[in-house]
Amino acid sequence: MTTIHQERASWACREWLQVLETASREVLQTMVHTEEVPLGAKSSAAAEFTAEFTAMIGLAGQIRGVLTVRCGRETATLIAALMLDLNPEQAAGHAWDALGEVANMIAGNFKNKLHGGSDACMLSIPTVITGGDYMLRSPADTLPLDLWFSFRGQPLSVMLEVQR
């Protein structure tokens, strides 16, 4: 049996997931110049996925949590190339910075779309981890909002872990 509190949390979770999807898609379309960004299947994408680039943004205030954007090296390089209008060879050195900015803009766009959200929390400066051999652990009890996009056929994960 679910409580009213749990039902409200579940409803808020579904609404926020929708907002996160819209916020992510707008950034990918406007700044990465990629119109078609379908959602991919989480299970198959997650199974064959090694995140070589992980960009993280902290949210603090009334909404507390961490937004992460994860993808492979090839995808991060392609994102940089599309943002800067360069070929992938020229863009490789900008991949981490580009992914950090994508995460920053998704987090900002997300909170700006929430009713009262833009005043409710502050964003940290982006942090980008390169290399896939790590575990991310949070001691807080978090509610994960998890999206898997298919970016030019490659998995791109956007996850917002909100502290309950």
């Binding site: 406007t30 803009m105 766009n109 833009s118 964003l123």
Partner: peptide
Amino acid sequence: ITTEGSESHVVQALSNGARGYIRKPFT
């Protein structure tokens, strides 16, 4: 030009002397 879209940031930026405010993502 910023991801910070809150009214308080806009007001503060303009009162500090900025002449325009663009939210990222932008065209």
